[in-house]
């Protein structure tokens, strides 16, 4: 098939699935148990990688920017720079890229193998709507857990920056902390939480779509898994740009 037509069909199917999923969120029956289980598996299960990513990102940010800032004699704003970068950009994007890799792939692989082993058909035959039972809980789990993980990532990133400022840059912690506090205001935080919610939704819906559109047996499951990571990562990065533009013009107008 023509790749262009194929692409358009995929966009159409993804949109249809999104529509059905959003409609299903508001309808009975709801699988609360499944939702909390997914929050645990997808969210809490990703805590370790988010902690590592956050800490080292904060550390490397402090390390890299301190040299440049020193040239202008404003080394005391290291904290502000690290914190702003994390809250606005690196926290949401890095957390969600890690989630796309760890969780998006897992969703696609799980649903894909359920599809090829006819478990999805069996589910429908036994009277369950797979959108409600499988897709909606994963969307809800990621839309709630991605912001939570982002906050944790931002926090440990700031601590990582603090650690480097004290040990390698020999700044007093009070300077770093005071400058960090300047970076945090309510609009920054709203923007910094809005992004991971949107990204979480993207990761969940792309993983589910790729899983549920698997064809070609076990090999197909592998293909779906790879495609879900690639597509989710690209969409996260592209959406990040668009959302940043919206957030800057709506929330972060310079006074």
């Amino acid at each position: 098939m023509n790749p262009l037509i194929n692409g358009i069909i995929q966009v159409q199917e993804l949109t249809l699935l999104t529509g059905r999923a959003v409609r299903s969120i508001t309808r009975q029956p709801r699988y609360w148990g499944e939702m909390f289980r997914q929050m645990d598996v997808l969210g809490v299960g990703s805590l370790a990688i988010v902690l590592l990513t956050g800490t080292f990102t904060g550390m490397v940010l402090a390390l890299n920017t301190a040299n440049t800032l020193q040239k202008f004699g404003v080394q005391n704003v290291t904290g502000q720079l690290v914190t702003t970068s994390l809250i606005r950009e690196l926290g949401p994007v890095l957390t969600c890229l890690m989630l796309a890799g760890r969780v998006g792939s897992g969703i696609a692989a799980e649903l894909g193998s359920m599809l090829v082993s006819e478990q999805i058909d069996a589910m429908r035959a036994l009277g369950t709507d797979p959108i409600k039972k499988l897709v909606v809980p994963r969307i809800v789990a990621l839309v709630t857990m991605a912001p939570a993980l982002t906050v944790i990532c931002d926090f440990v990133g700031m601590l990582g920056g603090l650690l480097i400022s004290i040990t390698l840059l020999h700044q007093p912690s009070s300077v770093y902390l005071a400058s960090s506090r300047n970076a945090v205001d309510i609009n920054e935080m709203i923007g910094g939480l809005l992004k991971p919610m949107v990204f979480g939704f993207i990761i969940a819906i792309v993983g589910c779509y790729k899983g549920l559109s698997t064809t070609g047996g076990t090999v197909g499951v592998g293909r779906s898994t790879t495609q879900s990571v690639v597509l989710a990562s690209i969409l996260v990065i592209v959406t990040d740009f668009l959302l940043s533009k919206v957030i800057i013009s709506l929330l972060l107008q310079p006074n």
Binding site: S117, E118, Q119, D121, A122, R124, G127, D129
Partner: peptide, 23 residues
């Protein structure tokens, strides 16, 4: 519709080729 089919499917048992058990 899918919702109407859910009622019909209550009357039907389906045995899948490989069992299709929830693993």
């Amino acid at each position: 519709t899918e919702e109407q089919m859910m009622e019909i499917r209550r009357k039907i048992g389906m045995v899948f080729q490989e069992g299709a058990l929830f693993d």
